[in-house]
Simulated scan of single mutants.
Amino acid sequence: MERDVMAEAVAWAARSLPSRPSVPILAGLLIKADAKGVTMSSFDYETSAQVQVEAQVIDEGEALVSGKLLAEIARSLPNRPVDFTSDATRVELVCGSARFTLQLLPVSEYPQLPEMPTAAGVVDSDDFARAINQVVVAAGRDELLPVFTGVRLEIDNDVISLLATDRYRMALKELTWTPASSSAEGAALVPARVLSEAARSMSSGEQITVALSNAEAGEGLIGLEGSGSGGVRQLTTRLLGGEFPKVRHLMDIHPTVTVRCKTEEIIASVKRVSLVAERNSPLRMLIGDEQIALEAASGDQAQASEAVPAQVENVAGGELALTAAGFNPHYLADALNTIDSPYVHFSFTAAGKPCLVRGLDEIDGDPKGDYRHVIMLMRLPN
């Protein structure tokens, strides 16, 4: 095999290896050589990863070795072709003058890898990766509340929706795809970390295949197949159980005040002002007639403020219905960094109520409807 191809394949497959395997055999990386090339696989009973790469195969066979150790060796090899050979007890790896011998693990004890489910359709890889990155920021990270660590994937004919929430913010992205059936529909709750991995490592090809089985039962499997550096990659993972909260209605916000400003300007301002934000204290947005001002403080030790030009519309009429809003600075920064438009549109109703964030292509245009990000506002001290 080519050294770079081998190193990339090993690194990607080994990334899914459990750090503390429940069974020692799960620390192994399965290497299979056949007429199609070489396939490297990992599996922890929940998530499987397979990558198939080109190789000159002299004898077909398979071997199971320590995945973490092989990944470390692969990173250190010189830029020369890599030869694998094995006998009944060990694998020998030769790259230039470097030679390594690894003990074989018993292939017979390794669990059978899950089959890819039936393909539900294909989606543009760049669009899918961008959608995942926009949504996973709102997924929870508390493993004690697993339903919030997932992304709800909904299929409605030629539209895929991705929805995530950690109870304090929500993100919804809708994109078109090519379904395998003209009447495709279904829903699945997918671990956000698996989708993040797919977004990082499967977008070098034109399309990603999405495959689902038993999604409605909550005990099914999702499979993702796409191209990465060096070869074709497949991920499968069990779907999360539990009922995802009904949060779509929270995105139907009828604002009393709207704010529009340049995305890059407010991102830079939030980054600067947040430097002095005290832990668990809000970043305050003061809303004026033609600008907003961001303020934060860390007790009496440090304060910061900065004004940003903005278009402010008082939808309710009369006096300005909302003059100040409190954001979690990290949530606000996450939301703004997912906006892929030159302008950003804030929709406010009242203090302490949800705020809707969307993108704008033009300052006087209509907000985009395919991506919506909602942040629960923090109560401001009097």
Score class of each variant (00 low, 15 high):
residue 4 D to E: 12
residue 18 P to L: 03
residue 26 L to C: 05
residue 26 L to S: 02
residue 31 I to C: 15
residue 40 M to S: 01
residue 45 Y to R: 07
residue 48 S to W: 08
residue 49 A to W: 02
residue 49 A to S: 11
residue 51 V to H: 05
residue 51 V to M: 07
residue 52 Q to L: 14
residue 58 I to M: 12
residue 70 L to N: 06
residue 72 E to T: 12
residue 76 S to G: 15
residue 84 F to L: 14
residue 85 T to C: 09
residue 90 R to G: 08
residue 107 V to L: 08
residue 116 M to F: 10
residue 120 A to L: 14
residue 121 G to F: 09
residue 124 D to S: 13
residue 125 S to L: 08
residue 126 D to E: 14
residue 132 I to N: 09
residue 135 V to R: 00
residue 142 D to E: 15
residue 142 D to A: 06
residue 153 L to M: 15
residue 155 I to A: 14
residue 159 V to H: 11
residue 161 S to L: 01
residue 169 R to C: 00
residue 177 W to Y: 15
residue 179 P to M: 01
residue 187 A to W: 06
residue 196 S to V: 00
residue 198 A to W: 12
residue 199 A to L: 08
residue 206 E to H: 10
residue 207 Q to I: 03
residue 207 Q to K: 14
residue 208 I to Q: 11
residue 208 I to W: 09
residue 210 V to H: 10
residue 217 A to P: 00
residue 220 G to I: 06
residue 222 I to H: 08
residue 226 G to S: 12
residue 232 V to T: 15
residue 234 Q to D: 02
residue 245 P to R: 03
residue 247 V to M: 13
residue 254 H to T: 15
residue 259 V to C: 11
residue 259 V to Y: 01
residue 262 K to T: 14
residue 263 T to W: 02
residue 268 A to S: 15
residue 280 N to W: 03
residue 289 D to L: 02
residue 290 E to R: 12
residue 292 I to H: 07
residue 292 I to A: 06
residue 299 G to W: 07
residue 300 D to M: 10
residue 300 D to S: 14
residue 301 Q to L: 15
residue 302 A to M: 11
residue 304 A to C: 09
residue 308 V to S: 05
residue 308 V to E: 05
residue 314 N to M: 06
residue 316 A to D: 12
residue 319 E to Y: 02
residue 329 P to G: 09
residue 331 Y to C: 02
residue 334 D to P: 03
residue 339 I to F: 05
residue 343 Y to C: 10
residue 344 V to A: 10
residue 345 H to K: 07
residue 346 F to Y: 13
residue 347 S to C: 11
residue 352 G to S: 09
residue 358 R to D: 01
residue 361 D to P: 06
residue 365 G to C: 12
residue 372 R to G: 15
residue 373 H to T: 09
residue 377 L to T: 06
